[in-house]
Computed example of a mutant assay.
Amino acid sequence: MPQAPTVTNLGDLGVDSVFGVIYPPQVAMVGLGRVMEQPWAHNGMLGIRPVVTATLSADHRVSDGLRGARFLARLDELLQKPEEL
């Protein structure tokens, strides 16, 4: 049976990033920090945009880094258009 990750958001407390520790029966934890304005380069242009750090801690007995990377990449895609969520 697939397990859902635990999600923790400490951004509302001013935390920049979260590096979670998972405890059984958890298999993964997604950590979200606060939204910060950061310089960002895109297509040769430099600007300021809101950025949030998302981290993933996972039990490698259940999954691997490739799935974790795909999950974070998909999360990034979805958060680029929050009005569509």
Results as ranks from 00 to 15, higher is better:
F71N: 05
L56F: 06
D16L: 13
G44V: 09
L72H: 04
P50M: 03
H60T: 13
Q38R: 15
L78H: 06
P5D: 06
M1R: 00
I48F: 12
Q80E: 07
V21R: 12
V21P: 00
E37F: 01
Q80R: 11
A28P: 01
M45C: 10
Q3V: 14
L85I: 12
P24T: 10
V52I: 13
L46S: 12
R61Y: 04
F71R: 04
G33L: 10
E84W: 00
L78G: 00
P2Q: 11
G44F: 08
D59M: 02
P82Y: 07
H60K: 09
P82E: 02
P25Y: 14
L13W: 08
G14C: 11
H42T: 11
D59Q: 02
Q3D: 08
W40L: 08
I48S: 13
P2S: 09
L10I: 01
V18W: 05
G33T: 08
A4H: 10
L46T: 14
V62K: 03
E83A: 12
W40T: 06
R61I: 03
G33I: 09
M29I: 15
S63W: 08
T55H: 01
P25E: 06
G20C: 10
V7L: 14
V62T: 07
F71I: 05
L13G: 00
V35N: 09
D12K: 09
L13D: 07
V27T: 15
R67G: 11
M29K: 03
G11L: 01
L79V: 05
M29H: 02
L75D: 07
M45Y: 13
A73S: 13
G47T: 13
V15N: 08
T8H: 01
M36Q: 14
S63H: 02
S17T: 12
A54F: 07
T8R: 01
L72F: 06
F71D: 04
G31R: 02
R70I: 02
Q3L: 15
E83F: 04
L10P: 00
E84I: 00
G44Y: 06
R49I: 01
